[in-house]
C-alpha cells in the first residue's frame, strides 16, 4: 500500500514543476499579462540574489568544513554520547545527528555509508534514512536566507531551528522503533 502511495507521490513530484509553470503561464496569459516581458523582469533579480548570498555561503560552509575535518565534530559527538544513549539513539546513528543540522551533503554521505555497511532494510539503515529526512540543514538555511536580505541579528532563529532539529532527529529514532521494531 505504502509503495503505491510512494509511487504516486514521486510522480506528483516529477509533474509538480511543469504543471506549476504551465498553469501560471496559462492563467497569466488568460488574464492578458505580457507573459514574456514580465517573466524576464522577475528573472533579472535572480543574478543579484545568487551573488549576494556568496559571502554568507562561503563563511558558513568553510567554517563547518574546517570544524569537521579538524576532528572537532568527532569530539563533540563523543561528548554527546552519554546523552544520546540515554534517549535510545543507536551509537552508529550519532554522527548523523550531529552532522545533519550543519551539512546536508555530509549527512547524505553518512547515510549512504550506514546504508552500505548495514543494508538499506536494516534497522540502522532505516533510522539513518528517516533521520536524514526528519529535518533540514539549519545552519545553511539560516546563513543563506538571512544573508540574502542582509540580516545580521538573527535573534532566536538558531535556537528555534536547533530545537526543531533535536525534535525531528529524536522522533526519527522513536518512530522507527515503533514502525519497524528494533
Amino acid at each position: 500500500m505504502i509503495e503505491t502511495f510512494a509511487r504516486i507521490m514521486l510522480t506528483v513530484s516529477d509533474w509538480a514543476i511543469p504543471i506549476m509553470a504551465g498553469s501560471i503561464v496559462l492563467i497569466a496569459a488568460l488574464r492578458k499579462v505580457k507573459i514574456y516581458e514580465v517573466f524576464i523582469e522577475g528573472a533579472k533579480e535572480g543574478f543579484q540574489v545568487g551573488v549576494r548570498i556568496i559571502p554568507y555561503l562561503v563563511a558558513i560552509l568553510c567554517a563547518i568544513a574546517f570544524f569537521r575535518a579538524s576532528g572537532a565534530m568527532d569530539l563533540l559527538s563523543s561528548l554527546l554520547k552519554p546523552i544520546t544513549n540515554l534517549v535510545g539513539m543507536p551509537p552508529e546513528a550519532l554522527p548523523m545527528a550531529i552532522v545533519r543540522p550543519m551539512s546536508g551533503s555530509g549527512a547524505l554521505g553518512i547515510m549512504s555509508e550506514i546504508i552500505k555497511t548495514h543494508g538499506p532494510d536494516s534497522f540502522l539503515g532505516r533510522v539513518a534514512s528517516v533521520m536524514m529526512g526528519s529535518t533540514e540543514t539549519t545552519f545553511y538555511v539560516l546563513a543563506v536566507y538571512f544573508g540574502s536580505v542582509g540580516i545580521s541579528k538573527i535573534r532566536h532563529a538558531l535556537w528555534a531551528g536547533l530545537l526543531a532539529d533535536v525534535a525531528g532527529l529524536l522522533s526519527a529514532v522513536w518512530i522507527c522503533r515503533w514502525m519497524f521494531g528494533g
Binding site: 505504502i2 507521490m9 532494510d121 534514512s129 528517516v130 526528519s134 529535518t135 526543531a164 525534535a167 526519527a172
Partner: peptide, 24 residues
C-alpha cells in the same frame, strides 16, 4: 543500495517532520 522497499520510510519521515515543525 538494493532496498526491497525503498519508499517505506515516507510515512516515518512525514511524521518526524510534523513533530519537528510543531516543536519549531
Amino acid at each position: 543500495a538494493g532496498s526491497a522497499r525503498p519508499a517505506e520510510i515516507i510515512g516515518a519521515v512525514f511524521l518526524a517532520t510534523c513533530v519537528s515543525t510543531t516543536v519549531a
